[in-house]
Each structure stands twice: as structure tokens, then as C-alpha cells.
Nucleic acid binder design. Structure first.
Length: 230
DNA sequence: GCGACAG
DNA sequence: ATCTTGTCGC
């Protein structure tokens, strides 16, 4: 339930230090189901404003499997780390943790916009957040970071394992016919099979599952501050 | 040296 | 991620 305190500079590290931290934290990731009955599921996404100088995190909590909106929170924070493929969590996790701290309903599972273990060092942002918060998480990325996969059948629900060598690190999942597949991977405490099942059960006619679609929308609409919203 | 490269 | 209008297709 509680959230680890985030020391002001806990995430203020150099890219080299960030890689070292990932090498140390990768082993803490739990790749099997270690969660109870799922009654609420959340989604988190990050948007930017002021020419990329400020990050905005949106977290949306929904009932499961009903998918009725239960709570939504926003957090804003100056960006302190550049975008470097493979080090996304050091750029986006700080503002996400701030948003999660404002949540009064702790979700049973969290869907994250990005990779879980389908990452060079098996610690994408979904896994990093999961371990940090000891929360079951699933990585749902709109594009591939690493790994290869066979062509995915056109039907909604079809998927192909994502491989890096002999290791299955995730799945290319067609959430809807006619759209590019999304990349689902274990975040923390959720098996790949369960991750795929949860994503499909949260999908309602769009490429992205509802928690992420709503979080993305919320992170894009700002009343005051950056743009006008859309 | 030449690509690839979550958001 | 973000800058941005109209436009092609189901």
C-alpha cells in the first residue's frame, strides 16, 4: 500500500550509474504470477509540455473487469534526465511515482506505457516501477525496443512470442484487427500469459487497453499550464 | 563505420 | 514525446 519515499536525488544519476542500477535491480523482478484477485487495474502515461522541460504523469484506476473509472490523478515535474533508449525509467519514473503517491485507491495491477522485461537489461520502466513499488505491473509498449518475432495473425487477440536469442521476453499482441500489434511484457509479479490476458480483457475496440488510453488522454489534456488541451 | 533505438 | 491539416479508407 504505502509507497517508498522518493529522496529528491534518488533518480538523479548519470547514464552510466543508471545502467549499473539496472544491472543490480534486474534480479529483483518476479516473472511469475504473484497477485491476488484483480478488482482494480490502473494505467499510467507521461506527457510533456514547455518544449519537453516539464513532464506530466497521469494515472487512471478502473474497476476490473468492468473498467469503470474509479480515480484519476495528475502530477507535474521538471524533467531531469534525457531520453536515452533503455533508460526511460530514469526520465519518467520520478513524475510517475509522484502521481502514484497521490492515489487513494491502490490498484491491484498497473499497466505501464513502455517495456517490462523486453529490455536490453530486462528492466524496462514497467519492471522498474513494479520492483520499486512492489506492485504487479505489465509493460505495454507501442513499438519494439529489442527482440524479434514472427508475423502476427490479423485477428484481434492473436500474438507471437518476442524473442531475444532463445529467451522469450514478451509478446507482439494484436489487440485489434487492422492495427499494428503492441508489445506486452512481464513488468513484475505477473506472468506473460496473465499479462496478455489482462491486456486483452482491458481492450475495448481500440489499439490500447482502456487504462492506458484514458491515462494518455488525461496526460494530454491540461486546463492550465502548457497548451490548451484537445 | 553503418543502422537500431520504449517515450 | 512533440511540432501539426487535411485526407484516405472502412
Amino acid at each position: 500500500m504505502p509507497l517508498p519515499h522518493v529522496p529528491p536525488h534518488a533518480w538523479e544519476v548519470s547514464p552510466e550509474e543508471a545502467v549499473a542500477i539496472q544491472m543490480q535491480w534486474r534480479e529483483r523482478v518476479i516473472r511469475v504470477d504473484c497477485l491476488g484477485e484483480v478488482r482494480t487495474i490502473a494505467g499510467v502515461d507521461v506527457g510533456f509540455e514547455d518544449e519537453g522541460r516539464v513532464a506530466r504523469a497521469a494515472v487512471v484506476v478502473l474497476d476490473f473487469p468492468g473498467l469503470v473509472m474509479r480515480e484519476q490523478v495528475l502530477a507535474r515535474r521538471p524533467v531531469t534526465f534525457p531520453y536515452v533508449p533503455g533508460l526511460l525509467s530514469f526520465r519518467e519514473a520520478p513524475v510517475i511515482l509522484e502521481a502514484l503517491a497521490r492515489l487513494r485507491l491502490w490498484p491491484d495491477v498497473l499497466l505501464v506505457d513502455g517495456q517490462g522485461i523486453a529490455h536490453p537489461r530486462r528492466l524496462g520502466i514497467a519492471s522498474h516501477l513494479g520492483v520499486w513499488c512492489d506492485l504487479p505491473t505489465v509493460g505495454v509498449a507501442k513499438s519494439r525496443l529489442v527482440g524479434q518475432h514472427a508475423p502476427v495473425a490479423e485477428a484481434a487477440g492473436a500474438w507471437q512470442p518476442l524473442y531475444e536469442g532463445d529467451e522469450v521476453i514478451g509478446a507482439a499482441l494484436r489487440t485489434r484487427a487492422g492495427v499494428r500489434p503492441v508489445y506486452v511484457s512481464i513488468g513484475h509479479r505477473v506472468s506473460l500469459e496473465t499479462a496478455i490476458d489482462l491486456v486483452m480483457r482491458c481492450t475495448r475496440g481500440y489499439r490500447l487497453p482502456e487504462p492506458l488510453r484514458l491515462a494518455h488522454h488525461l496526460a494530454s489534456v491540461v486546463e492550465k499550464g502548457g497548451k490548451e488541451g484537445r
